[in-house]
Amino acid sequence: MSLDKGRLLYRVYDGTWGYDEFNAGWGDTRFAPIDDPITGKRLSHMYLGESPATVLLESVFHDVHELGSMIAYEAQLHEKLLAHIEVPAAATLGDLRDPELERLKIERSQVISSPAEHYPCTRRLAIAALAQKHDPPLQGLIWHSRQAELTKKPAEEVIILFGERYPAERGSWTRSGPGSQNLYEGPGRLRVDEVAEELRALLEIDKA
């Protein structure tokens, strides 16, 4: 499917880096880090969501659900910001949303709803998708959030873009509305508190 230029999306990011700077290939997530099956080089990546609540569920509240814990920690909010950004150029995405999975007779639990211990498997799926020949080539993936499902919210879209395949330079992403909001205080913190209240989750000062 095509991700349209100009679409408003949201991202939670570390203030040490820019709001439109791709992760250089660190971490342990469902579809990253991976190496490009064509070039063999590590792909940078960026996770985005269709609403502020979605990206907060996928980051600050990632482990807050009935199968995990109902506690989040304020330490996770330090240096974190919520960016409201517009897609600078159209992108071609591999579609892993619920209707497409159903058409392919694939269960969500096989790809999207699997727990973290199966991330190596889902990353191999991403590599296999990127290895296929497409015109234009795939530049990312789109699916319906596992965190939204676990917290019994309506289906919400989550997107990963791979930097070397989606050549959008720093400065090409336009911030919209309030731009970037600090999640530790002010309007950004109010968004965090709203999600916590809806989940009936506790925000504790420190894990210790």
Results as ranks from 00 to 15, higher is better:
93 L>N: 10
50 E>A: 14
71 I>T: 14
70 M>W: 12
65 H>T: 10
76 Q>H: 13
84 H>K: 05
66 E>K: 08
110 Q>I: 00
47 Y>N: 08
72 A>V: 07
96 L>I: 00
80 K>V: 08
60 V>A: 07
42 R>D: 04
46 M>L: 14
110 Q>R: 03
61 F>H: 12
82 L>Q: 11
89 A>K: 15
59 S>Q: 04
73 Y>L: 14
70 M>V: 02
109 S>R: 07
68 G>S: 11
95 D>E: 11
87 V>C: 05
87 V>E: 10
49 G>P: 11
109 S>G: 12
105 K>C: 03
85 I>L: 15
101 L>R: 02
84 H>Y: 15
83 A>I: 09
95 D>I: 01
76 Q>G: 14
111 V>R: 01
99 P>S: 04
108 R>W: 04
76 Q>K: 13
102 E>F: 00
96 L>P: 04
64 V>W: 13
93 L>A: 11
44 S>T: 15
111 V>D: 01
59 S>L: 02
67 L>E: 12
44 S>I: 10
79 E>T: 10
54 T>E: 06
95 D>F: 07
98 D>A: 06
44 S>F: 09
103 R>P: 01
90 A>T: 07
42 R>F: 05
111 V>Q: 02
62 H>Y: 14
79 E>A: 09
75 A>S: 13
105 K>E: 11
91 A>D: 04
65 H>C: 08
80 K>Y: 02
79 E>C: 02
109 S>P: 01
53 A>Y: 00
80 K>I: 07
111 V>N: 01
42 R>W: 03
94 G>M: 12
58 E>H: 08
51 S>D: 13
47 Y>P: 07
107 E>R: 12
93 L>Y: 11
101 L>E: 01
94 G>W: 14
94 G>N: 04
51 S>I: 08
74 E>I: 04
91 A>Y: 09
111 V>M: 12
85 I>R: 06
42 R>M: 05
103 R>V: 01
83 A>G: 13
57 L>T: 02
90 A>Q: 14
95 D>T: 02
94 G>Q: 08
45 H>F: 15
51 S>F: 03
105 K>D: 10
